[in-house]
Amino acid sequence: MTSVGAVVRDPGSSIKNKTGSWRTFKPTLDKEKCIDCGNCILFCPEGCITKDYDIDYDYCKGCGICAEECPVKAIKMERE
């Protein structure tokens, strides 16, 4: 059934939809090279990079913005 007025009472519930399956290229982050600038975290359209620079592959669509914006090229995009 559809709720009255199609109201969704479960905030943030889109996490049920794992968009990681969309990905063709997978980013891998080399923490040795990382200088903790935070660019990848800020610029991720999914908001799926943690403050410890762990990428949540359940949601990463593989857009490649993080790799592009990394000033020290610590992120590599590889075909899955």
Binding site: I15, N17, T19, W22, P45, C48, K51, I65
Partner: peptide
Amino acid sequence: EIPEKELLAPGHRACAGCGATIGVRLA
């Protein structure tokens, strides 16, 4: 100081590389 908390959850249906969701997340 940039607050860590994300108020727009992933799993949304935006195109890969969507600029709108970046903007909304930051706002």
